[in-house]
Simulated assay, not measured.
Amino acid sequence: MILLAYLAGSISSAIVVCKIWRLPDPRTQGSGNPGATNVLRLGGALPAITVLFFDMLKGAVPTYCAYLMGIDAVSLGLIAIAACLGHIYPLFFGFKGGKGVATALGAMAPIGGGLALCLIATWLLSVLITRYSSGAAIITSLSAPLFTWWLDDRFTIPVAMLSTLIIIRHKDNIKRLLAGTEPKVTDKKLNKK
């Protein structure tokens, strides 16, 4: 399941969607990050929503299948991390992937609708207030283990594992946020970061 999750994660939705929509390669344009936020800047809402959906799906499917197989909580966390690592370091796309936020959200969603709603609401509220996708991702990642502990404490450790991975992946964004140079979601034209 770990290997299958990694392989599923390695299918880069952003690159595939950009090819289908004939948009620039998100690894070389905009922020240089092959994720939904950069695709939003490059091609608008519909391609970005498509990327978001498929990035979440590749986290949700392996984790939920493993859950149905009765795999223990810590192993579920490892499977979810494997899907995110596939997204971050995709085998099929030269190991240059995105931040893993949507894939992690997808992996956490099967825990329960309440958790998914809390995470989505936290991200949306954070991005509306700050206008920073990365800042919203960091805030949501910090909140996720607390929400999980409150709603279904069996999965607190795997969610904390995923959250740690997402925060580590955002280390450059954290530096830019502190320096005041991080691009906002509304920034249309960016030099590759």
Rank of each mutant, 00 (worst) to 15 (best):
L178A: 15
S126A: 15
L162Q: 04
F155H: 01
L177Q: 08
I168M: 13
P145Q: 02
P158K: 09
W150F: 13
L151M: 15
I167S: 04
N173R: 10
I157P: 01
P145G: 02
T130Y: 07
H170P: 03
T130G: 01
R154G: 01
T164I: 15
A179P: 02
D152I: 06
T140E: 11
L177I: 13
I157S: 10
T148A: 12
D152F: 06
G135W: 00
S141E: 03
A144N: 03
D172E: 14
G135R: 07
L178R: 09
D152E: 13
K175V: 06
D172F: 13
D153P: 12
S126G: 12
G180H: 09
V159F: 04
K175W: 11
T148R: 12
L142P: 00
I138G: 05
S126R: 06
S133K: 09
G180S: 10
W149H: 15
I157Q: 07
T130F: 13
N173T: 05
S163T: 01
S134F: 01
R176V: 03
L128W: 14
E182H: 05
T130I: 09
I138Q: 01
Y132S: 04
M161V: 03
A179N: 14
R154M: 13
A137N: 03
I166R: 03
I167V: 10
I138A: 01
W149R: 06
I139H: 03
I139M: 15
Y132L: 07
A144Q: 08
